[in-house]
Amino acid sequence: MKEQVLGVDVNTENYDELIPKLFANIDAEKKSLVVAINPEKLMKAKEDPELKALLNRAEFQIPDGVGVIIASKLQKGNIKSRVTGVDTMDRIVREAARCGKSIFLYGAKPGVADAAASKLIETYPDLIVAGTQDGYEQDTQKVIDTINEAKPEILFVAMGSPKQELWIEQHRDNLYPTLYQGVGGTFDVLAGNIKRAPAAFQKVGAEWLYRLLLEPTRIKRQMNLPKFLFEIIRQNK
């Protein structure tokens, strides 16, 4: 099920409801794209019709951000819990290891995808990593050929949003994988290059605050949250 937040579709499922749907699509060979929806992205989409259309064309839009939960509550919606991009990737990888589906990691600086893959295999020994490719290869056809030769069911793309979603949408008809997710900086988190917020911050949906404490220059970006909530209140008067 989905509801709209500022004109963008957002899935209402939690992890336990979402993952079976993703893997059912794999089994049915139905290509699917997972995009993460947060207040910053919604505010950009409000001013950018092309971005809004791109987000709405995805098969799954996960509520990645406490602001989206608050917005749903304010408009009496059904989104009850955050479904973050990094945790969705982890849940997908866990299920892939369980049922024998293979993954491919594409993006980030040279060596990062390899390090992330090693960490995933360390966590999930049964996981099949069909291959990796850094994001610095300039020959797009070579990247496509590398992925297709590996024949993974699942492709994770780490380019930053919306570049990664645009790349997936542009090329997925010519790619072997069935399930696609743009994962931003998640490879760097897995590789240990970027530290994720402590569990206490994650639990209350305050990872944004942790990042702000580490990088005060992010304050301009974080101002999108109060602007976003004001816009939600204004539209629901």
Rank of each mutant, 00 (worst) to 15 (best):
R234E: 06
E149Y: 09
G131L: 09
K2W: 02
T178M: 07
T186C: 08
V183N: 03
A117K: 07
I26H: 10
P39M: 08
E207I: 12
D90A: 09
K21N: 05
K2Y: 09
L6H: 02
A191Q: 03
D16V: 02
A199G: 02
V143A: 04
G205A: 12
L175N: 05
P198N: 13
L175Y: 08
G111D: 07
A97C: 03
N25R: 15
P177R: 10
T146D: 14
Q181H: 07
V204N: 13
T12L: 06
V68Q: 04
N193K: 14
L209W: 07
A150K: 04
G77R: 06
W167P: 07
Q235Y: 00
I232W: 04
Y210G: 05
L42R: 06
A24R: 15
K44R: 15
I26Y: 12
V204R: 14
I19P: 06
G131F: 12
L229A: 10
F228C: 02
L42C: 14
K101S: 07
R94W: 00
V86S: 15
W167H: 09
M89D: 06
Q235G: 01
A53G: 05
L55S: 02
R196D: 11
M89L: 14
K220Q: 13
E95L: 04
T146L: 13
K76P: 00
E13I: 00
A116K: 06
E59S: 11
P198E: 14
A108K: 12
A197V: 11
M1D: 14
Q222C: 12
W167G: 12
N193T: 01
K203V: 09
E137G: 03
D27M: 02
E59R: 11
L22Q: 07
N25D: 15
Q4A: 13
E13C: 03
L51D: 02
